[in-house]
Design a protein around this nucleic acid. Sequence first.
DNA 1: CGGGTGACCACAT
DNA 2: AATGTGGCCACCC
Length: 109
Amino acid sequence: MATNDNFFERVYDVAKKIPYGRVTTYGAIANFLGAKQSARMVGWAMNASAKHEDIPAHRVVNRVGLLSGKHHFEGTSVMQQLLEAEGIQIEDHKVVDFEAHLWDPAKHL
DNA sequence: CGGGTGACCACAT
DNA sequence: AATGTGGCCACCC
């Protein structure tokens, strides 16, 4: 077994399903997994996802649309650049019209 | 083995 | 209204 740490695997699975040009939040994923209290773990899972190439962690931001994880990327602007490349406008490290681009797994999945 | 930290969020005061 | 604290679980020292 192994292989799957439940919570982590689920986070990866959902993160991979984030549509192009859309963003989601740690809390939304955690909530979707039924553990909104463990939003922190989602972030930690993303950290581990760094070794997972198929995890578009740049599409995951905190609940206010702030690129909380930009600091953990290869560079500091990579995350923003990726989002902008997908048509998402970033201003002051925050997603513009965040709710409009928000993709909630609990709603769409 | 124990403690502290962390890409967070929600509630309480 | 703003600030503080709690909670969750995994990983590092």
